[in-house]
Design a protein around this nucleic acid. Structure first.
Ligand SMILES: [Zn+2]
Ligand SMILES: [Zn+2]
Ligand SMILES: [Zn+2]
Ligand SMILES: [Zn+2]
Lengths: 135, 135
DNA sequence: AATGTTTTGTTATATTATAACAATGTGTAA
DNA sequence: TTACACATTGTTATAATATAACAAAACATT
């Protein structure tokens, strides 16, 4: 059991690192083919290479998919085990997306029970409205 | 001058009615091209005809889009003005989807404020887990 | 009947995502 | 070290999802 194992969850492969860096630097969610276009100069030529990296990055929680937009954003809740419990606000005018980090909200949702008493530890919540600037 | 006037908000056009009926009868969310296949015998031949009807049905709240699945389900909260505030549970094994109707949840989310004090009247929440049968 | 609006029909195309297969690299343990 | 299991890469092709653009018909209101 060595460092590699400990940090396995943050040990990115070459393509994963390239694509994560791009998403992480971006001020807005990026779509797969926009990513592809941007990383072609780095030798990533095919959609599948992008999608594979995206899948992995989502799986390990480094990025999230904004489902309503088919776009990807870097996780900014580095503390949380949040590949599985995400919440975002989305501006319907400028499309600005912000990851919501609210202990109250995540607690409420993690404890929410449906009619059958079922609890769900995994969820995705997307709020829509107008951001400060667009209001 | 017929039924049309009274039920304006639920007065569907021919294609809208055909497609709504299909979705409403279905026990599972339907994808656009599955819908297309099913209504070709009724004269709806092109994807755009399906997507236009779907857009309208979503807009008026008769159906909802399950964003993580690119599929459509009939609204079963006939009481609520809920085109804009939806919550679902999704079984990750059998893909059963159920619309959640919880006064507590919708109240909590409608009143939720982000860090900037911003409230959002529109949201979509998707819970993931295993349904009763699959547990 | 005149009008503006919504809905429809149609062809073409754009966007998003996966299948299938071969090759290479990486971590682990005998 | 060597061998094995496994993850990652490269590549071509194709599937699945969604919209653009334009013309015609249906519908609602006056
Ligand atoms: Zn996050
Ligand atoms: Zn905005
Ligand atoms: Zn509903
Ligand atoms: Zn199930």
């Amino acid at each position: 059991m060595r460092i590699s194992k400990v940090n396995k969850m943050h040990n990115l492969s070459k393509n994963q690192q390239i694509i994560f860096d791009l998403i992480d630097k971006s001020s807005e969610p990026l779509k797969a083919y926009a990513i592809l276009f941007n990383v072609q100069k780095k030798g990533i030529k095919a959609p599948l290479q992008v999608y594979r990296a995206l899948d992995k990055l989502v799986e390990i929680g480094k990025i999230h998919k904004i489902e309503s937009r088919n776009a990807f954003i870097a996780c900014h809740n580095s503390s949380c085990q949040v590949a599985k419990a995400t919440a975002f606000s989305i501006c319907e005018i400028c499309e600005k997306v912000t990851e919501i980090s609210s202990a109250g909200l995540s607690k409420y949702l993690a404890n929410f029970k449906d009619k059958d008493g079922m609890k769900y530890s995994k969820y995705n919540l997307e709020f829509f409205g107008l951001c400060k600037k667009c209001r």
